[in-house]
């Protein structure tokens, strides 16, 4: 028997095991997020999907729906929280949109625009993490990684287990499971979901940058609130064109 909770004033039915994110998504209610993808188990890493549940802040992607819950997904306070979280992500990495090939197709950039972020009020840490260009087809720029963990989960689901999050706290970094620690010594391919699922410009198929003209990029067409979390699909470094249809979380 279906159960009922309230999201943004609407009574919504749900099934046992559904998360708040699942219930909202089924009803077409967009909740900002970067680390969640419906194909993978939720982890609550980015906290952008924080919603108000009976006066408490909770992650929509990891909170199980319960009968009688009253959930608010959007408010001035929640927007301020999300903007601050987005600013923290920008300050923690090197997200220089003007020179980044993911600009216009980047979920972090689109989220920043949607949250009304115009600058980061936090000190920029300007990290200098190791860039891994050893793989013939894939580039890993750790300074752009937001530690969402999507590539870790996607690679595990593909049975390759190539990525992991190493270190703790501010020393956390995306590590590669190979003897050398380099992508060249893994069986990763450009077509793997682990490569393609990156929401930012951290894991990129080589030699594909800027092939999608300005005006035809995903978030040239609308905001992330309207279009959802989408990403371009690249095939191999030798392909002449990139497609922007394809994978969407929504």
């Amino acid at each position: 028997m279906s159960q009922v909770l309230t999201i943004d004033g609407k009574d919504l039915a749900f099934d046992s095991g559904d998360t708040l994110f699942d219930v909202a998504q089924a009803q077409g209610i967009y909740i900002p997020h970067l680390c969640h993808h419906p194909d993978y188990p939720p982890q609550g890493n980015c906290k952008l999907c924080t919603v108000d549940v009976d006066g408490q802040s909770k992650c929509a992607c990891t909170t199980q729906a319960e009968t009688g819950m009253s959930v608010q997904t959007d408010s001035t306070t929640l927007t301020e929280y999300r903007r601050a979280l987005t600013e923290l992500l920008f300050s923690e990495g090197n997200h220089h949109c003007p020179g980044c090939e993911r600009s216009g197709n980047c979920q972090l950039q689109a989220t920043a625009y949607a949250q009304g972020m115009t600058y980061s009020s936090f000190k920029l840490l300007n990290p200098q993490r190791q860039i891994d260009a050893s793989h013939p087809s894939v580039l890993l720029d750790r300074d752009r990684c937001i530690l969402c963990g999507l590539c870790v989960r996607a690679s595990a689901q593909e049975g390759k287990h190539i990525f992991t999050i190493a270190g703790r706290g501010s020393d956390s970094t995306l590590a590669v499971n190979s003897d050398s620690g380099l992508l060249a010594d893994t069986n990763l391919s450009a077509e793997d979901r682990a490569t393609q699922v990156c929401p930012v410009g951290a894991l990129m198929v080589k030699q594909q940058g800027f092939r999608i003209p300005i005006g035809q990029r995903i978030y040239d067409q609308g905001t992330i609130d309207d279009l959802g979390n989408r990403r371009p699909q690249y095939h191999s470094p030798k392909s002449k064109t990139a497609r922007i249809a394809g994978d969407s979380d929504d």
Binding site: E101, A133, L139, Q208, G209, F210
Partner: peptide
């Protein structure tokens, strides 16, 4: 990466 050069 070299393909960033024209943009940067």
């Amino acid at each position: 990466p070299y393909w960033e050069l024209p943009m940067v």
